[in-house]
Amino acid sequence: MIIKLENTTTHDIAMQLTSLYEERGEVTTGRVFTLLIECSEQDLEQSLHEANIASSSHPCRIIALVPDMNAPEQSTQLDAEIHYGTDVGAGDVIILHIPGQLIHHIDTLVIPLLLADTPIVSWWPGIFPDKSSYDSIERMVATRITDVERTTDLRTALYDLQKKSSPRDVDLSWTRLTFWRGALVSLLDLPPHLPLKECTVTGQKQSLSTLLLASWLQETLHCPIHLKWETVPGHHISSVRFLREDGVISLSRETNKNSDNVLTDQVRLRLPNNTNRLVSLPHRNIADCLSEELSRMKADPVYHKALNSYFIQQVLQQGTDLL
């Protein structure tokens, strides 16, 4: 169900929510946090869809902030929508269409709409946000989740992430790696536990995930790490190959597609003892990643170490062909 409120006030929106709860005998106390999403009009539907999936495991209030590019520069007219009922996951959704004037202080715009005494998480789908909105809510949020996946200028985005993010913030490029990292840990668990000589990470250009994985390995393994770029488009990470004293151990993505023409979630495992077989390494969609972040909401020192490593500095300095 959708309620549209044109030229409204935050006070009216809040009142409307309260009366909706009373009417339906609902309580807001089951909701564990407020999720702020800032995105463009064309990204809105998809982003809400992802957030709704994530909200089924983390009931929350979602406030979507959509800058209105067509509004006159001086406009302060606020239009809003409230979505509720079964089609919006386990929460309720407030969409705010924000004209130019209001975009510079979104904090005071959302404060009246936040759930009482629960944490706030913000998420910018797809691209690194504009400085003003990223900074303006820093003090009130528990975690700022960014995602530079669709950013065309990775160099600048990476620079922004290094300079502006606080220890509690995270980029989903890192969350996408969780299963890969888990698989690599268990790969090294396989005996014999001989020293590693070198390691090669192969992935897509412009993929922060690939860079972060290589950087993490560099920080933890203390052996030479090589970065190679994939020539055909595909997964963020194509393969990781360790050269151990007894030979090569590696995991590489299969490019097989299943009957639905979707890339399978299998990787090929190769070991020095001639082992060569497929193992499962599930792909992660945005909702999975978001869900992982929402259940954590705490600083991840391992990520920040990888993000600010000497390795990444070197890559940044080595000219554009690496990014």
Binding site: G182, L184, V185, S186, Y303
Partner: peptide
Amino acid sequence: NPLRVPCDLRLPRIADP
């Protein structure tokens, strides 16, 4: 395992083979 550090709370608990 050098990749397994105590502060990496995000890593899934994957069992031995």
